[in-house]
């Protein structure tokens, strides 16, 4: 069997490889190439060198969006992970109906971003109407609206990952600690946290990259209003690409920088949290 697999490896791997090339490698390389060109449609491009990157950096909207995104990411990553972890702790205790609660908390994750954005727009506007304001009245409403939305959507998912991690903590160690007289706070800090480090790595990775790349929810909830003050990076890139003739290349350049940024942040994060993981 093993030999067979070796023999036919190339043949079997080929379809997947082709799919990967067509759906990922080609668009990716083409995307990088296009960021150095001026084009209307992707098939007719004219080389302009670094021009697009210069324009992108000169664009105040881009830097504003970067700052807004960074703030959003910090707030939502912290809140999502803390809340998800607490929920996971709660739902691994022997409480009646944990399964029902797990399912309910997980469900928001099954709804698409655009739909979620519009639902929350209705909810938040419904409340703000009482005070004669709307989501667009002040950028801070949009900011916190996005944070709430993102929490609501991602907490359930992260919770499931944390639950899996917590359930993997060996019962013997917990019992031994208890017999040695460790308080539940100590158990949490010295035993559970170090042992769920792999889950934390994954959850941080998912929340950071998702918050940074947020697009649908941003578009549906505020679309950047008022005056682009709640525009996140992905939306800014989209707007650059489509709302100005001749700026397609600049949008592309922004997208390439965006990719490098996200990749860098995530790699650093993975490096840091990986080091803290211990072999179980």
């Amino acid at each position: 069997m093993q030999k067979m697999i070796k023999k036919y490896f190339a043949l079997f791997a080929l379809p997947t490889l082709i799919a990967f090339t067509v759906a990922f490698v080609v668009p990716f390389v083409l995307g990088i190439y296009l960021s150095f060109t001026e084009f209307t449609t992707v098939t007719d491009a004219r080389w302009v060198g670094l021009d697009n990157y210069v324009k992108a950096f000169k664009d105040p909207d881009f830097l504003k969006a970067l700052w807004f995104t960074a703030k959003f990411t910090v707030v939502s990553v912290v809140s999502i992970n803390v809340l998800a972890f607490l929920l996971a702790l709660l739902l691994t205790k022997k409480v009646l109906g944990t399964n029902v609660f797990r399912t309910i908390f997980f469900m928001p994750n099954l709804i698409g971003g655009i739909v979620l954005g519009y639902i929350w727009q209705l909810i938040i506007n419904g409340i703000l109407y009482q005070f004669d304001v709307t989501l667009t009245s002040d950028p801070k409403y949009g900011f916190w609206g996005l944070v709430v939305l993102m929490n609501w959507q991602l907490i359930g998912y992260m919770m499931i990952i944390y639950i899996a991690g917590i359930q993997n903590v060996p019962k013997e160690q917990l019992e031994a600690a208890k017999i040695d007289g460790a308080t539940s706070g100590t158990i949490l800090r010295k035993i559970i946290l170090p042992l769920v480090m792999p889950s934390i790595t994954i959850c941080l990775f998912l929340t950071i990259s998702n918050s940074f790349k947020l697009f649908d929810q941003n578009l549906a909830l505020t679309a950047g209003a008022p005056s682009k003050q709640t525009t996140m990076l992905a939306l800014d890139i989209f707007n650059t690409f489509y709302s100005k003739a001749g700026f397609e290349g600049v949008g592309q350049a922004k997208a390439v920088m965006f990719f490098i940024m996200v990749a860098l942040i995530v790699v650093i994060q993975l490096g840091i949290t990986r080091r803290r993981e211990i072999e179980n």
Binding site: T136, S137, A225, A245
Partner: peptide, 20 residues
């Protein structure tokens, strides 16, 4: 000149209506 011009105008109008 561009969609962006119109959107800037529209955004400013929204902020004017909201009093900001």
């Amino acid at each position: 000149p561009s969609e962006d011009f119109k959107n800037d105008f529209g955004d400013a109008l929204l902020e004017y209506a909201q009093g900001s």
